[in-house]
């Protein structure tokens, strides 16, 4: 297991930021860490990184206590709101971090060039963070997490406050690196996590609500459909009339959850219906969306 927690708790005074969390996460596909504000996501990442100590319970990362010397170079992170020194050059600071990881001066120089190229900021090596945009600074912070070859990278809201092109780049980067590194990604963007991650850890008020696959095991029973400018009442009535459709319910404007006996057959029939009526759709997916599963009725 890459991360193991047993009855892990973290208290700030009388408030339980983490409340008896027990979970075991294997290495491999990316892991989503989700929950509303104050759920304990950042606290859990901070404990796993050794930034803060636990109040009770046990926690191991790659089989070691967080902060253990043997984890140097093995665990990397993008802590929430952490920034490099705005007054010093980006390259100089990244080389210093690489040297601390145990690289020689030459290896550090080469690796810094590599990670800056990976985040498409090779030109920023001689810039100071203060001269870069928020999105660029975030990508630099992600670049520091990619130094060396860590086995586990924890990213705390990597796309928060980032414009769509930069957010897309960060998502692609995580997807590309996922074959060699296990990512734990905390975010409020459930669509993003659904596309990136295979496992979802859901926290609420410091407690673990669920751990499981992002893909719905009961996918065969549901289809989620997103339509563009389609008359709602007409569509619901027509869809309900299709064979194998048990119910059609509106999630939000244009989004529908369709319960069916056979999702494959229902998908074909729904597409046929849309083609016949000239209604346009944006997305058709098996099962409920992650948002629906977590927060839907």
């Amino acid at each position: 297991m890459i991360i193991q927690c047993r009855q892990l708790s973290k208290r700030y005074g009388s408030k339980n930021a983490l409340d008896s969390i027990s979970l075991a996460l294997p290495a491999g596909d990316a892991i989503a860490l989700i929950g509303p504000n104050g759920a304990g996501k950042s606290t859990l990442i901070s404990v796993l990184c050794g930034f803060i100590g636990k109040s009770a319970g046990e926690v191991t990362v790659l089989g070691k206590e967080p902060g253990a010397r043997t984890l140097i170079g093995q665990v990397a992170a993008l802590p929430q709101d952490a920034q490099l020194d705005p007054r010093l050059g980006v390259g100089r600071q990244l080389r210093f971090l690489a040297r601390l990881q145990g690289m020689s001066a030459r290896d550090a120089r080469l690796d810094v060039q590599r990670v800056l190229q990976t985040v498409d900021l090779a030109d920023a090596e001689h810039s100071k963070p203060a001269d870069l945009s928020h999105g660029m600074r975030k990508r630099i912070a992600i670049a520091q997490a990619l130094l060396g070859s860590p086995r586990l990278i924890l990213l705390d809201e990597p796309t928060a406050g980032i414009d769509p092109p930069n957010a897309k780049m960060i998502r692609e980067l995580i997807r590309e690196q996922s074959h060699s590194t296990t990512f734990v990604v905390s975010s409020h963007n459930l669509d993003e996590l659904e596309r990136l991650c295979a496992t979802v850890v859901y926290l609420e008020q410091g407690r673990l609500v669920s751990v499981g696959p992002v893909m719905d095991d009961d996918a065969h029973g549901f289809v989620t459909l997103r339509l563009i400018n389609t008359p709602e009442a007409e569509f619901v009535e027509a869809a309900r009339a299709l064979p194998g459709i048990l119910s059609v319910s509106r999630i939000t404007q244009g989004d529908y959850r369709i319960e069916t006996t056979d999702d494959m057959l229902a998908s074909v029939l729904l597409l046929q219906l849309l083609a016949d009526r000239g209604w346009r759709y944006r997305q058709l997916s098996r099962g409920k969306s992650l948002e629906e599963r977590l927060y839907g009725s």
Binding site: F51, G67, P79, A82, Q83, L97
Partner: peptide, 16 residues
């Protein structure tokens, strides 16, 4: 100031 900026977090991942 490294603590308030969060830079110290980058360092403690790499040394004690």
């Amino acid at each position: 100031s490294e603590r308030s900026r969060g830079t110290l977090r980058f360092l403690v991942l790499r040394c004690s």
